[in-house]
Computed example of a mutant assay.
Amino acid sequence: NIRWIYIITFLGECYLTMSIWLFFYTRYLNFSEITTLVVMQQVVQLVFEIPTGAIADLLGKRKTLIISYALYFCSIFLTPFFSTFWVFFALEFMKGVAKSLASGTYEALTFDTLKEKGKEEQYPKVNANIISISWVAYIVAGLLGGVLYDISYFLPYLILACFFLAATIILLLKVKEPSIDSEQGNLNYKKYFSQMTLGFKELFSKQTTGTLVLFLLLGTLGYYTASEFMGISQGKSYGLSATNVSFLFTGGYLVSAGMAQLFTKLLKKGNVVLIAVTSSLFMLASYALALFVSPVLGLGLIMARIGSSSTFSNARSVILNQQISSKNRATALSTFSLLYTLPYVVVVYLGGKVIDLSSVNTFALLLGVLLIVGIAVSLTFFFVAKFRLKPGELQT
């Protein structure tokens, strides 16, 4: 599967609309309506997050991804043909379901494919390759998205839809379900609801794991908010056009792609938790300092945040997968996604209010302070608990 997973990664992550979606929506909607769509999509993902993770473990990861990518294709293909809020609402709803179906499932399929062959020790390298491919896809999308949008706002959406259609066909014809300790094919309501509770146990049952997961959640929240909302909002607030925002993102993607390949070397020389903590400092600085620096330095901070995100994401993936059993892997990873999506919904809603009253970077400062305090507290409890353990008790 791994060869095909690499190809699907590129197709699914070459998200040509990532740097132009805000420009497209402002053609027809005001900022309040746009924020409503963003929040709604995340609420849908939040509601379906754990249920779809349970479905992936019980129905099968491959089948779940096929449904997800088919929904992505439909929602993206239809978007540029409409101009009304309620149609966009329905399409973003569909996209939220698709995102929740893929969340955790893709990562679980990758890890279990390796585990089936007894090669799970290769996961950090394979995951680093996936992240590097993702950043290459982001670079291509960053370079082309704004240019295609300037030619015709239809083009980024239609080409991206074709990418998801191709990925769906590959999943149908080439990818196989790993034959390991999952219960696919036996989906029923009793197992379904039982499976939903196991994600929390996988994440929080072990000593010290809870505080470490809290740090990972807060760090992921910071990066996720940046990639989904703050990055493009800050770029637009600095007066950049759609094409210039694309080029800004591309610069960060180039750095991040390189850092993803360096991760395995860093992992050999340092502790994976320390790597995650160090990389998160760039994200925190990009929020806390944005209000006080010049636009040029502010854009540099955005690039540094993007560049450090692959290192954090890779470290987070290694830490979490060391703690989770294959049987409940998709459920647990979907649970993790739910736990940072919930506060993200609140962050975006309140962010829209603050931005209307003040500015994007004022909100960035407030969010940065909250993240710094939360991360400091979680890491303090983690290291206190860690030093109380006997050597070897904490796997990470």
Rank of each mutant, 00 (worst) to 15 (best):
T9W: 01
W21F: 12
F24I: 06
L29A: 03
F31W: 06
T35L: 11
T36F: 07
V39K: 01
Q42N: 05
V44G: 00
D57C: 00
G60Y: 03
T64C: 06
Y69L: 13
I76G: 08
T79N: 09
F81P: 03
S83R: 14
F85N: 10
F88C: 10
L91P: 07
S103V: 09
G104S: 11
L109V: 14
G118E: 12
K119S: 15
E120R: 11
E121V: 13
A128E: 09
A128L: 09
N129K: 14
I131P: 01
I131R: 12
S132V: 11
V136P: 01
A137T: 04
A137L: 10
G142F: 05
L143P: 10
Y149W: 12
P156Y: 04
Y157H: 15
F163S: 11
T168V: 14
T168K: 10
L171D: 04
K174R: 15
E177H: 07
I180R: 02
Q184T: 09
G185Q: 05
S194M: 11
T197Q: 13
G199M: 09
F204V: 07
S205V: 09
T211G: 05
L212A: 13
V213C: 03
F215K: 07
L216C: 05
L218S: 02
G219Q: 03
T220N: 15
T220L: 05
Y224Q: 14
A226R: 02
S227G: 12
G231I: 04
G231K: 02
I232T: 10
K236T: 12
S237Q: 09
S237T: 12
Y238W: 03
V245T: 13
F247C: 05
T250W: 02
Y253W: 13
V255E: 00
S256P: 08
A260P: 04
L262P: 10
K269W: 07
V272R: 09
V272D: 06
L274D: 12
L274C: 07
I275R: 05
I275H: 04
A276F: 09
S279A: 15
S280Q: 11
L284P: 01
A290Y: 03
F292W: 13
F292Q: 02
S294W: 08
V296D: 10
G298K: 00
L299A: 11
A304D: 00
R305S: 12
R305E: 09
I306H: 02
G307F: 01
S309K: 02
A315V: 08
N321Y: 07
Q323M: 15
S325P: 05
R329Q: 13
T331N: 01
L333R: 05
L339E: 00
Y344K: 14
Y349R: 08
V354F: 02
D356L: 08
S359T: 12
L367D: 01
A376T: 14
V377Q: 04
L379P: 04
V384W: 08
A385W: 05
K386D: 09
P391T: 08
L394W: 14
